[in-house]
Design a protein around this nucleic acid. Sequence first.
DNA 1: ATTTGTGCAAATCGTTTGCATCTGA
DNA 2: TCAGATGCAAACGATTTGCACAAAT
Lengths: 150, 150
Amino acid sequence: MTRHDLGVTATQAKRPSVEAQERLTQVGLRPTRQRIALIGILFAKGDRHVTAEMLYEEATSAQIRVSLATVYNTLHQFTNAGLLRQIAVDSSKTYFDTNPSFHNHFFIEDKNELIDIPPTNALVGAVPIPPEGYEIDRIDIIVRLRKKRR
Amino acid sequence: MTRHDLGVTATQAKRPSVEAQERLTQVGLRPTRQRIALIGILFAKGDRHVTAEMLYEEATSAQIRVSLATVYNTLHQFTNAGLLRQIAVDSSKTYFDTNPSFHNHFFIEDKNELIDIPPTNALVGAVPIPPEGYEIDRIDIIVRLRKKRR
DNA sequence: ATTTGTGCAAATCGTTTGCATCTGA
DNA sequence: TCAGATGCAAACGATTTGCACAAAT
């Protein structure tokens, strides 16, 4: 079980999960009803790439009462806590990745979909040396894909 | 002289440039007053990373009458024509790079500044294989920098 | 003369904020 | 009890759009 996999199934998402509660407490966030529910949805099924709107829709249709503003707050709190990673694909929507460890992404332009690049297929290289006084915060690599024209 | 360097100096930017006109015609855009002026500003001094707002300010203070909407239009037209490259650093502002050829960027987080990674310092590696039916449009690599803490 | 571009203001859209109310420790 | 969290609606900021007018071919 990886660090970001809480082992919560989709059906469990609605019920308070002990694991989710512990996880929240660990990172210094109060285990509220909304946060427990959201953490449940986010980590229920493997790695995901969600927008605030997507998560909000999903929570709402799962009978979880939560406001969009709280979804935004929660996503940022989880990101600061290291549970999520933020990804900038374009200047409109912001995506959040449930796998915070370093890896790269394919972005399928005609579907606005973000998928992990399998590690066996990864783009790796020398890490550049930052200018004096700065250090690397993180490296974002996005490989943009378009439909192959034949 | 590189392909994207028109050799136009800052002082020439205000006067219609034959080179700018030719360049526009080449890519199928009518050489209008605004487009000639903007192309002049953009390529006057080496590689740059501008936002629509930045370019608009610069044009305005150089006595060039142009609307912000036209700046947006023009930036997109130039991008489609291959004169510029669009860079997504975060989900607020959109940056345009006057060097459309492949290279990577440092993003200085505390200054919201984008700079080229010198080629000698570049991050290169194996190019990942896209999923079936897709091909690589482009690869965006952004190395985010924060002030070194001592 | 016809097509294309421009400017303005209003509209859009994702995201943030202010503030009253609620909740968890 | 009471700091911290939530919900709502209003505010925001970057970008886009509709449309009348202007400029280029």
